[in-house]
Design a protein around this nucleic acid. Structure first.
Lengths: 271, 271
DNA sequence: CCTAGTGGTTCCATTATGTGAAACTAAGTC
DNA sequence: GACTTAGTTTCACATAATGGAACCACTAGG
């Protein structure tokens, strides 16, 4: 699972396969179907090469190609694969009952997230009874340095992985409250590590606050994080802090469930 | 979009990329993390080759590798990609409001599906009582020859693509009502094509019935299908048939929305 | 302590594969 | 009818994939 140091070059890394996947990412980047020449403009590959990749990927069902308009889009095969990925690799299916319970208990929005390429990937979500429209859904990604779940995970990562992850944060100041320097973030991570939970003080979106806790394996590895999110109109950080105990319990329960799921019947050996 | 004849060899097709994706599929096949030697047993590739693929894919975040146990699983990068795929390539985001409306009006379960490799891929669902949960349901695949949506789509495919798709149906008799021969199915497809909607008469699951209509582009291409599903205890085929008009309207509305979506206003770059 | 067996990783000569400049075709412009 | 623009095909060349075999790290069993 290695929720921490997932390497993955990003820029053209290993071999032909890596390049092909870069093309896939490129298509994903656009939120809409793209033309050949749109992709070509990125100067990632010469014409012929790009063309061949698009053909191969289309052939494989990873892309779809509308012959009418000549547009390429991500293929449905990905949806199928992702369903399997979601089911077998993410915490979501394990965490589901616990999230349900927490959602019912708190009545707020719950997020479950994991790290992916130094970003936060939301893998599940429970809507508040009074739903709030906001940036998140399963599969969506968000920044790590200015979200509760992101900071909770960063705070509990080993130094090497953390450094690599920090390198890749944009520190874009979404709001006046956004921590926009490496040092400011590092300082807060120390506090978070100490107390075991993280706040989002409207750092990503004005009016949106949350409290998040990491989900750690028995060996202390970061597996993911979960948060209870609300708005400044509805509640306060102090009120959210009250919930921390309950949330931590929930995280612990998920961790335990994950642990036993990973070693179904093996004799467990302490490190 | 070519919702019909999505080729995609399945067995090792084009180049290195195709092979790598086969490995991915292989991992997906197991519902659980797998060891190197499990995969090796399939004799798809020699040891060294498989090893290299696994390394590359892990590197790329398409697989995750638990160093403790040596298990491989599908990587979270897939979930991210799929989110994009779901959003940009499936009918789901376009159809969403229409499905909501239909769900409210009928009070029954609604499915939205597309073809993927001669199988039915569910891309969205409305559960009368419960709210939507994305990947938990969306992303599942099912057989084409014995589901309402499957038959609705098959019935409206061009002959060449249909033949190819039929070739790949298993015709496993799930229930006594399952159409279990090519000819029986072909006969029904003619009827379906004529009237524009398809029934599932407990052909896939005992007690589960549905009525489905295809979603066709203006040019008559199959883009997907949708169905209203219920149980024999709750309703009858005749009662479902009453709804056909409404469902067809809904399908037409989705088609129209999709059409205008495909030729969007240019120039808008996210992030 | 040695030997055999299992499961995973690395080497490296061979050659298949991918590469990309350039030529080509098909549609639009002006 | 000359002139872009957008996509497709070719082909000599070199890179990158291949896979048999050797190699390690363990574990078991004699």
């Amino acid at each position: 699972m290695a929720a921490d140091g997932t390497e993955h070059a990003g820029s053209t890394g290993d071999g032909t396969v890596g390049k092909a996947l870069d093309v896939l990412d490129l298509v994903a980047q656009y939120g809409r179907p793209v033309r050949f020449s749109d992709l070509l403009e990125h100067r990632l590959f010469p014409k012929a090469t790009l063309y061949r990749f698009l053909q191969t990927l289309t052939n494989q069902g990873m892309l779809s190609h509308d012959v009418q308009t000549g547009h390429y889009a991500l293929g449905v095969r990905l949806v199928r694969l992702a369903h399997a990925a979601w089911a077998q690799s993410s915490l979501a299916p394990i965490a589901r009952p616990f999230l349900d319970e927490l959602a019912a208990a708190t009545g707020e929005t719950i997020h479950l997230a994991q790290m992916d390429q130094a970003q936060v990937l939301y893998v599940d979500k429970r809507n508040a009874t009074r739903p709030v429209e906001m940036f998140s859904q399963a599969g969506k990604v968000g920044p790590a340095y200015c979200t509760g779940v992101g900071k909770a995970m960063l705070a509990h990562m080993p130094e090497a992985a953390l450094e690599r992850a920090l390198q890749r944060q944009s520190f874009h100041p979404f709001t006046p409250q956004t921590l926009s320097t490496r040092t400011a973030l590092r300082a807060e991570l120390v506090t978070i590590r100490a107390c075991g939970y993280a706040f989002d003080r409207e750092e990503h979106e004005q009016g949106i606050i949350c409290v998040a806790v990491p989900i750690l394996s028995r060996s202390g590895q970061v597996m993911g994080a979960m948060s209870v999110t609300s708005t400044t109109q509805r509640t306060t950080l102090d009120a959210l802090e009250q919930q921390v105990g309950r949330i931590k319990d929930c995280a612990a329960a998920i961790s335990a469930a994950a642990e036993s799921w990973r070693f179904p019947e093996q004799n467990q050996r302490g490190e």
